[in-house]
């Protein structure tokens, strides 16, 4: 039986509000950081606030709210958390490696060179990519 939000017990309302505020607050701070941090490599850290505890807080709030209001255990939100966590690094690495490639090719900034000790030692050409 679904209850209206106003009928929730106080402890549940406080917990839901807390996690919702923490989650959305972190997502907001992440967005601000994305705007304000000076370099690309620093900016790339900011959205991970939203993808870690940002999503985590909203997820917990949703789980508590629907579990309490519908009177049965609701936790399929956990799937959102799992999939966001597992897929973020893919986009992330794609962006970061594109930026690294560009910066190395154009020689701007103090980006570290590709480590090619072993490539020099083995005489392998510079074209080889990692993950092969």
């Amino acid at each position: 039986m679904m209850q209206a939000a106003a009928d929730m017990p106080v402890w549940a309302a406080i917990a839901v509000a807390f996690f919702l505020l923490v989650g959305s607050g972190l997502a907001l701070i992440g967005a601000i950081g994305f705007l304000r941090l000076p370099t690309f490599y620093e900016r790339i850290h900011a959205p991970t606030l939203g993808t870690s505890w940002g999503i985590g807080g909203v997820m917990l709030a949703s789980m508590i709210f629907f579990t309490v209001s519908s009177g049965r255990l609701v936790f399929h939100e956990i799937l959102i958390g799992i999939f966001v966590t597992v897929t973020t690094p893919i986009t992330f690495m794609l962006l970061a490696r594109a930026a690294l490639h560009r910066d190395r090719a154009e020689g701007n900034g103090n980006v570290p060179d590709k480590q090619n000790k072993s490539q020099i030692a083995k005489g392998v050409s510079d074209e080889s990519e990692s993950w092969n």
Binding site: Y41, I44, H45, A46, T48, L49, T51, S52, T85, V86, T88, P89, F92, M93, A96, R97, L100, P112, K114, Q115, N116, K117, S118, Q119, V124, S128, S130, W131, N132
Partner: peptide, 26 residues
Amino acid sequence: LAVVLTSTPGSAWLEYDSNDKTVLLH
């Protein structure tokens, strides 16, 4: 390890080189 380091804000996994088994982090 890449998922752990990426989902921990403040550390970013940039690239892994399987030739000399090093990872570049920011």
